[in-house]
Amino acid sequence: MSKLEIRNLNRSFDGVPVLKDLTLDVAEGEFVSILGPSGSGKSTTFSVLTGALPPTSGEVRVDGVPLAERPGRFAYMPQKDALLPWRRVLDNLTLGLEVAGVRRKEARRKVEPLLDVFGLTGYERSYPAQLSGGMRQRAALLRTVVQDREVLLLDEPFGALDALTRARMQQWIERVWEEYRWTVLLITHDVREAVFLSDRVYVFSPRPATVVKCVEVGLPRPRTLASYTDPAFTRIEAELLETLLEEER
């Protein structure tokens, strides 16, 4: 059974449909990506999942339980990193735990062993403005995973980074994911990123968003630089790109 099931989800703004009969699944420990044109409704999907927006119709279930019955099962990383500039890095990292009522000391104990993995050791007392772009994204990601929620929702986590840093982050997240095996739903514009990281890729149509394609990425893990040149990789990449370009027309 799927960890996360989205069934025939609809949402409109002032009568304009943004999500249309959206259906997708994510299994436990699976890395799933959403590709789609800008403004199609990807972020809106996440807003519905986090409870910020009620759906117009349709259903979301986690472990078979409707979202309305048990909210707060997603850890969300917004499109901008949303680190609070007035909080030191460590206090940004513990924010979710703090909101959940965890004592400060205990929250820090939970974050500390992960600092090294996320390359943030030595920056605990810095302010976000003192971090590089890549470090900010890693900090935002650490803030997300440390909440211990069942599914991670990552909205274009590397969208704002330069190409080199972005490639490094993809390599890094692949390595870390191999170790922790979080259940991830990732939004991205980057076809290669989606193929490199995912077990499955959904392609959204332009607004109103609906799933136009679902591709299983059967590439062996762990994925490395060599994966990029795997013929299967290039074939899937071309297929996805073609779908996206066709949809745009």
Binding site: F74, A75, Y76, P78, A82, V99
Partner: peptide, 8 residues
């Protein structure tokens, strides 16, 4: 939106 998703 982030804080709300955290349950704030």
């Amino acid at each position: 939106a982030l804080l709300r998703s955290m349950g704030a």
